[in-house]
């Protein structure tokens, strides 16, 4: 009896038995090509960039790269443009991502309804996403020039007569409107990505939840607030994280529309780094700015991923 009553302690399996090891090996083997590609196109240049930020590397002094320790970072800390470009980068990135998320959510909710020509509209909404950045920038440049379509429309609406706006307002050349105009262009260009991601998340929410909520007398807003948003939270987090990183690093729209002007009002860290590296030939300094951007993005990613885990739990 006692023998049957005494539970035998189960034999402890080794942490890595042969079968597990074999399975793991197969997994890693399949991952290997992707990891090699990632290392070659991403990690090696990243590492090189970090090393270059400690060097005095100028395009005008070939073969004279010397180790200068933290000098580039010291110059950067003293550069009056650093603080300005830092805040403007956040203004550009967060402004764009917030608007893209709102517009993306609105269009995803609309496209999730049973409407006529739904497939057509789903295709249509993707157009801004597939338009090349340079082309989009040129289009917005023409729209927002002093005699462009936007000013003509605003004049037709009577805003000029009311004195609310100048008849030939140069949207991109006025520091008060230059960044909002670029954010608007970037929102138009990037919201379809949010739409597609949000639409996929919406379609994965079981209909039963909404039916149960309806029976319980929940309003549309309550359904959205308590069912849709919590169910979509992981997607919203990942999409906004990606959007923030991409926007923070992007320069195409700014480069073409304003080149960081007027008077540095649209200069972001990424644009600042580009100008230092390719305008002034100061690759070491540009790399130091790049490393600052990398560190900022790493912090943001860690915070987002922590939030993501919490939401998933």
């Amino acid at each position: 009896m006692s023998a049957t009553m005494t539970a035998r302690a189960p034999a402890r399996r080794p942490m890595l038995d042969r079968r597990t090891l074999k399975r793991w090996m197969a997994g890693y083997l399949f991952l290997l090509p992707a990891m090699i590609c990632l290392a070659v196109v991403s990690f090696v240049p990243m590492f090189q960039g970090i090393v270059t930020s400690f060097e005095n590397f100028s395009l005008f002094r070939p073969g004279q790269r010397g180790f200068v320790g933290l000098d580039q970072y010291r110059y950067l800390a003293e550069d009056p443009l650093l603080a300005r470009t830092f805040w403007q980068s956040w203004y550009f990135a967060l402004g764009s991502v917030a608007l893209q998320a709102i517009l993306g959510m609105a269009s995803a909710l609309l496209l999730n309804q049973n409407i006529w020509f739904r497939g057509f509209f789903r295709g249509l909404v993707l157009i801004p996403w597939v338009v090349p950045g340079a082309l989009a920038a040129m289009m917005f440049g023409l729209l927002f020039t002093s005699t462009g379509l936007v000013n003509t429309l605003l004049a037709d609406l009577g805003l000029v007569d009311l004195g609310l706006i100048n008849a030939a307002h140069p949207w991109l050349s006025d520091p008060r409107t230059s960044m909002p105009t670029i954010i608007m262009a970037n929102t138009w260009k990037g919201f379809p990505f949010f739409t597609v991601m949000f639409l996929a998340a919406l379609q994965s929410i079981p209909k039963d939840y909404y039916e149960a909520a309806m029976i319980d007398g929940a309003s549309n807003w309550q359904s959205f607030r308590h069912i849709t948003l919590p169910s979509m939270a992981p997607t919203i987090l990942i999409t906004t994280l990606l959007g923030t990183i991409w926007t923070f690093n992007s320069i195409d729209l700014i480069y073409i529309l304003t080149s960081g002007g007027p008077y540095y009002s649209t200069m972001t860290l990424a644009m600042f780094s580009y100008n230092q590296g390719f305008g002034r030939g100061n690759i070491g300094y540009a790399s130091a700015i790049g490393v600052v951007i990398l560190a900022l993005m790493a912090i943001i990613t860690i915070v987002y991923l922590a939030a993501y885990r919490r939401v998933e739990r």
Binding site: T145, S146, P170, S173, S259, G261, P262, Y263
Partner: peptide, 12 residues
Amino acid sequence: AVPSAPTDTYKE
């Protein structure tokens, strides 16, 4: 001068 001069390039 054309009001967009501050951000106009040679193309504009």
